[in-house]
Design a protein around this nucleic acid. Structure first.
Lengths: 221, 221, 221, 221
DNA sequence: AATGAATGAGCTTTCATTCAT
DNA sequence: CATGAATGAAAGCTCATTCAT
C-alpha cells in the first residue's frame, strides 16, 4: 500500500472561506433588513441560497454569525475611513481638521455607496448585550485614546488651545459623526445637507480647538 | 351577565389608568433587567403581581407595552432635565451655558439615582425597528429644532457667533451628552469623572459658540 | 380597595396533579410503544389529547417526564409486590419461601393485567444513563440489603445454611425474577409456563438455602 | 455473479472486509464511550480515520452498524468465555461447576482487561427495540438450551438432582452472571469482591444442583 | 374584570444520509 | 472508491396570545 494517492474529492481549498463570507454577507443583508432577533437562520440560508444545515457547517451559532457580521461592518467602516490617514500625525490645526474632514467625507461616500450600512448600527443595537457593547465601547476607547494623544501633541506644540481636556475632547470629536449618521438615518442625505453638516461640525471643532490668541495673531482660517 | 343598571359609583374610574401605569412600570423594571426580547409577558405580569391575561386587557401586544415603556423613559428623562428651565429663554452665552450645565447636572443626578436608566437605551435598542427609531429620531429632531431656535436668537442678539449653522450645532449640542452616557455605561461614573467631562464639554461648547468678541470688539449684546 | 374578592378563574385545585398524571400515563404508553428516544414530545401530547406546549407547563423537559414514568413504573411494581408482606419477618425457610412465592405470584398477576409493564424495562433501558442506572442500582441495592438482613437472621436462627454469603445470595435472589421477566418478554406467558418457572426457581432457592442437615435430621418439607 | 474479466490482481480482496471490521471496532469504541444515540456517524468515521461517506459504502445505516457492534460484542464475550470448554461435556457435578467457575473467572478477566465491555450493555440497551431484543433473547435461549441439555445429561447420569427443571434452571444459571455484572457496574470490582461473589454463586449452584446423595447414600454413577 | 391554562407557530440546532467530484 | 459538502427533516423547547371560567 504505497500511500494512497489522496483518495476522494479534493477539499477545494478556498471553499470554506468563501462560504463563510457568503453567509456573512447574506446575514448582513437580512439582519439589516429585519433586525437580528427577527431574523431566522432559515432566512439567512434562503438569502444565501443554501440549506439551513449548511449554515451550521460554517458557524456554530446564530450569535457567532452576528459577531462576524459586526466585524464585517467594522472592517467596512475602517476601510472607508482610511485610519492610516489619521495616523499621518498632523502638525497644525489645519492639518488636523483637514484629516477629520477627509475622514468624514469618506464616511459619507461610503454611506452613499452602501446605504444599508447605517442600519447596521440598529442591527448591532438589536443584539446588544454585555459582551457586544463591551466590544463596541472598546473600539471607541481605543480610537479616542489615539485621538487624545494627537490632541495632546497639538497642545504641546501650541496649535491647540491649552485648556481642553484631551480625553473628553477626543470622545466628543468622535461623537461628532453621530449627528451626521442620524441625519442619514432620517433620510436627509442630499450632498448639500451633508456638506452643510460637515462644514458646521468642522467649524465648531475648529473654534473649540484653535487657541484663542490665534484670533488676534492671525487670520482665523 | 346581568349586572347592567350600574348602580352606585362607577368602579374607580381611574383604575384602568393606574393599572396601565403599574404594568408599564413593571415592564420598565424587567425590560431593563433582562432586555426586551429576553423578557416574557409572564415576567411582566409576575412583577406587577397580576395574571398574564390581565396584561392583555390593557395592552394589545408586547410591542405596545414597549412603546409605553419608552414613553415612560422619555418622561423620566424630560422630567429630570426640567426642560422648562431650557425654555427660560437665555439672554447671554453665560445663561445658555449655565442652562446646559444645569441640565447635564440634573441628568447625572438622575443617572445616579436611577442607574438602570442608562440600560434603558439598550432595551430600546434591543427592540429597535423602523417605527421606533423614527420615534426616537422625531424626539431628537423636536428638541434640537427648539435648541436651534434659541441659537438663532443668540446669533441675532450677538451673543452667539454668527458663523454657526444653528440646526447642525443644535444637533451637535444634544450629541454632547453621548460621551457622558458612554462613560456611564463604561462604569466610569465617579463624581470627579462626571465633573471633568461636564466641564470639558461646556468649555468646548463655549469656545464654539461665543463670538470672538475681541476681534469684532463690539458689544456682545 | 377592600381586598379583592379573589378575582379571576379559581385555579381548580386538583387540576395540575391530574394533568401531570395524565401526561405521565400517556408518556408511559408511548414510551413503551416506541421507546424513549424514538418518541417525540408531540407524540406524548397527541396521546394525551393536549398541545405540545401544555406538556411543558407540567414538566420542564422530556427527561423529567421519563423520570416520572420510571417512578410510575416502580410504584406499580412495588404496589404489586406488596413489600410489606416481605417485611413480615419470616421465621422459617418455609415462611421465607412462601413469601417469595407470593411476591412472584403477584408479579405475574400484575404482568398479566398490565402486559406493557415488562416493556417498561426496555424503555428505561433505552434512556439509561449514569444517573438513571444509579437510581436503578440504588433500588436494587436497597432491597437486597434488606433481604440480606433476613437471610442473616435465618442463618442465626439455623433455618438457613450457614455457609452462604448473605449479600451475594440476596442479589442472586432478586435476580431470580429475571428469567421470569425474560420469559414474559419472549411471549411465553402461559399460566403453566409461569407456574413451572416459579416452582423451579423456588426449588432452587430452597435447595440453596436450606441447611443440609435438615435432610437427615427431619422431613424436608 | 460471473465476476467479470478482472484483469490484474484483485484489489485486495479482503480489503472490504477489513474496512468493515475497522468501522465496527471504531463504532464499538465510540458507542461505548458516548452511547449509541449520542454518537454521530461522523464520530465513528473520525475514529476510524475515514470519511463519513465511506461508512455508507460498507453499511446501509447507523442502525446496521449497531447490529454488527452487538455481534462484535457477543463474539468478544463468547471468545472470552471459551464456550468450547463448556462443550467439553462434564461428567460430574464437580466438572460442571469447575467449568462454570472457569467461565466466570474468564469473564472477570475479560472485564478487567476491557472494562468498557460492561458499558456495552448500556449501549445496546440505549438502542434496544423489538428486533434487537429478540436477537438478544434468541442468543440467551440458544445458550440456555444447550446448558439445559447438559443438565439433563447430569440428571440422567445421577450427578444432578432429579427434581430440577432443566430449562428453567439453565436460564437461572445464566442469570447468575447478572449480579456480578451489576457489581462491576457499581464499581465494586476488586479481586476480593469478585472472588467472594463467584464463590457464593457457585456454592448456591452446587447446593441447588447436587443430589442430596447423603439420602440415597450411593455414588451417583 | 381577572385569571391562568392551553396552545401552536416558530425558533435554533443536530445529524443521518446523499451525491458531485 | 473515497470523500466531505450539502441538506432538510425533525427534535426539544419557548412564549405571545386567546379564552373558558
Amino acid at each position: 500500500m504505497p500511500e494512497q494517492p489522496r483518495r476522494g474529492r479534493p477539499p477545494l481549498a478556498g471553499l470554506p472561506e468563501r462560504r463563510r463570507q457568503q453567509i456573512i454577507e447574506s446575514a448582513y443583508a437580512v439582519f439589516v433588513e429585519r433586525g437580528y432577533e427577527a431574523t431566522a437562520i432559515s432566512d439567512v440560508a434562503a438569502h444565501a441560497g443554501i440549506g439551513q444545515g449548511t449554515v451550521y457547517r460554517y458557524f456554530a451559532s446564530k450569535r457567532e454569525i452576528l459577531d462576524h457580521v459586526v466585524d464585517f461592518g467594522f472592517e467596512k467602516l475602517i476601510d472607508a475611513l482610511e485610519p492610516q490617514s489619521l495616523l499621518s500625525r498632523p502638525n497644525s490645526a489645519e492639518e488636523l481638521l483637514a484629516g477629520v474632514r477627509a475622514a468624514i467625507t469618506r464616511l459619507y461616500a461610503m454611506l452613499e455607496h452602501d446605504p444599508d450600512f447605517v442600519r447596521l448600527a440598529l442591527v448591532e443595537a438589536s443584539a446588544i448585550d454585555k459582551e457586544l457593547s463591551d466590544r463596541l465601547l472598546g473600539v471607541e476607547l481605543l480610537v479616542s485614546t489615539f485621538v487624545a494623544q494627537e490632541l495632546r501633541r497639538g497642545v504641546a506644540a501650541g496649535w491647540i488651545r491649552a485648556d481642553i481636556d484631551p480625553e473628553v475632547t477626543a470622545h466628543v470629536t468622535l461623537t461628532l459623526v453621530v449627528p451626521g449618521l442620524l441625519q442619514e438615518m432620517r433620510g436627509d442625505n442630499t450632498p448639500q445637507a451633508r456638506e452643510r453638516a460637515t462644514a458646521s461640525m468642522l467649524t465648531l471643532l475648529e473654534k473649540a480647538l484653535r487657541p484663542s490668541h490665534s484670533v488676534t495673531a492671525g487670520p482665523a482660517r
